[in-house]
Design a binder for these strands. Structure first.
Length: 749
DNA sequence: GAGCACTGC
């Protein structure tokens, strides 16, 4: 069944020369690190070698950071293995389990294995676990490392392989009891790297978009044929660069301006970023006409996820990478490792060149490695999972790179506020139930409350699904369509705010028969909505299976036919009568943590008690660090005139987006009386020990922070507009600095 | 009053 062509292909891979050595190493060692460059064939071949030479091996699990990788690799391997996908070789990702009782080799996302480990920490079904692409250091892989070390103690016979592309793998080996490292020589092409003569990375901040375009044009006019890939940080920059380059390239006189005008006669520019329509994403894979140079402006998506064929010649290298703090998305310099990886994209199919917009000196000053995700994420869900697995002392859990204890403590405190853990830090029955759902714990809590207390879990499961997917509303780039999108969106706005708005969007989508064109006409992201439908279905299935009842708060007096007729009116959607108070009360059970109060005379809001929940002083003094604004996409934004600003006293928000100011995304009007009781939990926080260290240090840090705090109570603070503006900027900068500082914290000190 | 990199259960 396996034809000779496939056998030849497999034998021509560089890794094939080491087949027997690899098999021997795996036979002899139960902990092993394997290092091999992308393209060495380790992901597809090593699991097959094991399958072929360990006959009594029941099941091999191989993790990948991305869904698409798990699917494509499993496809490839099942073909090489000569079996149907899903029989002996299969894959398992969320919403798509393509395995069977026969499956012996299972590719999966690291998140899937992590969830399996939550239910069975010993991973009894498996004889071999392979953590692939370990160098990417996703949050999930890092947690798996800690768990697997424990599993190794419980089940020393389980074979654990860590596969990585980085040269810096001693860390993995050291972590796993100084286990041996097996190195596979790679096959990549030479990449010549050009640095800018003197540009400091720090000085690029404001000008790098312009410089990127200039450099691209220079390369186009001075270098031989070959495509160009440019790394930028976001959608805005990419769209602007595309426009600018396109305009400038139009003015070129090829015979006069372009050195290789015989071979380079035209230029075609593409953007690529994740939120781009799938069709537009595909465009970059097409071959350009003869003599046309292809330029792609990309986000990080091109660094790891997408290999663009034909980008084999000339690559320009960009200098910034976004990185998240707790809530904020920050633009920060990339690490040396990431810069090298980016440059490596130029050598995938032929020799290439990389142009860095910064000097060699600047390169050497960059952080050597990217800070692992676990040290710059909210650990709320992670800590809940670990608690569920019975790990009590989270602060001393064996992480390969321990997160800042502050992150762990914050997570514990939030879990206490959500009533998922008790005063001793033990998982409560409610916390145990929250683990049923693959959701952020805030949303799990809301979903359970909507079923148990408020009788609206049918609607809440829909809203929760909508909140679990990417941005629903599309914002076009050109002004005319932007205006149109703003207008179309208004149909969905609900006077109580955005949770209800999201429900109305989904119901419209459902009524359309889940129609793609319906979405396009209304500037709604079809990919996001269809994902939301998937998530909603999965949630309801889990609810049914675990006895969480699905109850609707829809009032029955309204017949479907009635509001169909009113479709053209702006008020159409609000004719559906829900007892939406119930829905908002359900959301308040978690989001009282994100309660904000409006300034008495302005349309800005202040955290009541969210960002700094490690002290409750701010509740008493009614003060906060940051002025919060309502996002322009929100139904409650003053310009939308859905609701009068002075009728908004208290709101809850879903998340904060830091731009030039702090924006609240997904905002809803609430009544304080729904929340007052819950606020007492903040008081209680002060008296409990959840397993964190002493709070002394935090208190000191807090006092320093508080010097820039505004107090809502003191009217005089708001008189000087300039002063306000300055303080606002300072507060944003302070939040930014705190997030940046976490990057360099050494938890051992 | 003007927008968020990328994953994943």
């Amino acid at each position: 069944m396996v034809n000779s062509r496939i056998i030849k292909q497999r034998e021509s891979l560089p890794i094939f020369h080491f087949r027997q050595e690899i098999i021997d190493a795996i036979k002899n060692e139960n902990l092993l690190v394997i290092i091999g460059e992308t393209g060495s064939g380790k992901t597809t071949q090593i699991p097959q070698y094991i399958l072929e030479s360990f006959e009594d091996c029941r099941l091999i699990g191989v993790t990948q950071p991305r869904r698409i990788a798990a699917i494509t690799v499993a496809n490839r391997v099942s073909e090489e293995h000569g079996t149907r996908l899903g029989s002996e070789v299969g894959y398992c990702i969320r919403f798509d389990d393509c395995t069977s009782a026969k499956t012996r080799l299972k590719y999966m996302t690291d998140g899937v294995l992590l969830r399996e480990a939550t239910l069975d920490p010993k991973l009894e079904h498996y004889d071999v676990i392979i953590i692939d692409e370990a160098h990417e250091r996703t949050l999930e892989t890092d947690v798996l490392f800690g768990l697997l070390k424990e599993t190794h103690r419980l089940r020393p016979e389980l074979k654990i392989l860590v596969m990585s592309a980085t040269l810096n793998v001693e860390k993995f080996s050291d972590f796993f009891n100084e286990c041996p490292i097996f190195s596979i020589p790679g096959r990549t092409y030479e990449v010549a790297i050009n640095h800018h003569r003197d540009a400091k990375i720090i000085s690029l901040k404001s000008t790098y978009v312009q410089r990127a375009v200039d450099t691209t044009l220079y390369i186009h006019t001075h270098e031989p044929p070959g495509d160009i890939l440019v790394f930028l940080t976001g959608q805005n920059e990419i769209e602007k660069s595309c426009r600018d380059l396109d305009n400038q390239a139009r003015e070129l006189n090829y015979r006069r301006d372009v050195q290789y005008y015989d071979e380079v006669r035209n230029l075609i520019v593409f953007p690529i970023y994740a939120s781009l329509e799938t069709m537009e994403q595909k465009a970059i894979f097409e071959d350009p006409p003869e003599g046309t140079r292809k330029v792609v402006f990309a986000t990080n998506i091109a660094q790891t996820s997408v290999t663009i064929p034909g980008i084999n010649g000339y690559v320009k290298q960009k200098s910034y990478d976004p990185s998240t703090g707790m809530d904020a998305l920050l633009v920060v310099p990339i690490s040396q490792a990431a810069a090298t990886q980016r440059a490596g994209r130029a050598g995938r199919t032929a020799p290439g060149k990389a142009f860095r917009l910064y000097s060699r000196e600047s390169f050497e000053q960059l952080e050597v490695d990217t800070v692992p995700e676990i040290q710059r994420s909210s650990l709320l869900g992670t800590v809940l999972s670990l608690k569920k697995m019975g790990i009590r002392d989270i602060l001393h859990f064996e992480f390969i790179d321990p997160p800042d204890p502050m992150l762990v403590k914050t997570a514990l405190k939030q879990l206490f506020l959500l009533e998922a853990i008790d005063e001793q830090g033990m998982l409560t029955p409610l916390g145990d139930e929250m683990c049923i759902f693959p959701l952020n714990p805030f949303l799990s809590r809301v979903l359970i409350a909507s079923a148990r207390q408020f009788g609206c879990s049918r609607e809440v499961s829909t809203i929760v699904a909508m909140l679990s997917v990417e941005e629903i509303f599309i914002t076009p780039r050109d002004e005319e369509r932007l205006f149109e999108a703003d207008e179309r969106r208004k149909v969905f706005y609900h006077s109580s705010g955005d949770y209800m708005t999201l429900l109305q969007v989904f119901e419209g989508y459902r009524d359309s028969g889940y129609d793609r064109d319906w979405c396009r006409d209304r500037y709604l992201n079809h990919r996001a909505l269809s994902m939301a439908k998937n998530v909603r279905d999965q949630l309801r299935e889990l609810m049914e299976r675990h006895g969480v009842s699905i109850i609707s708060c829809r009032q029955k007096d309204n017949q479907d036919g009635d509001h169909r007729k009113k479709r053209s009116k702006q008020t159409y959607y609000e004719t559906r009568k829900y007892d939406f108070t119930k829905i908002l009360e359900a959301f308040s059970t978690s989001y009282f943590i994100h309660l904000a109060k409006r300034h008495p005379h302005r349309s800005v809001f202040y955290h009541y008690a969210s960002a700094n929940i490690h002290t409750s002083e701010m509740i008493d003094s009614n003060s906060s660090l940051l002025a919060l604004h309502i996002s322009p996409l929100s139904a409650l934004h003053p310009e939308n005139k859905i609701v009068k600003v002075d009728s908004l006293d208290w709101v809850i928000y879903h998340s904060i987006l830091y731009t030039s100011k702090a924006l609240m995304k997904v905002v809803s009007k609430v009544k304080l009386e729904w929340i007052e009781e819950k606020l007492k939990l903040f008081k209680k926080l002060e008296t409990v020990d959840l397993g964190g260290d002493d709070n002394k240090k935090d208190k000191q840090e807090k006092e320093v922070d508080d010097e820039s705090v505004d107090s809502i109570g003191k009217e005089s603070n708001y008189i000087d507009e300039e002063e306000m503006k300055r303080k606002k900027l300072e507060a944003i900068e302070a939040a930014r600095q705190r997030a940046l500082n976490r990057r360099s914290l050494n938890p051992d000190n």
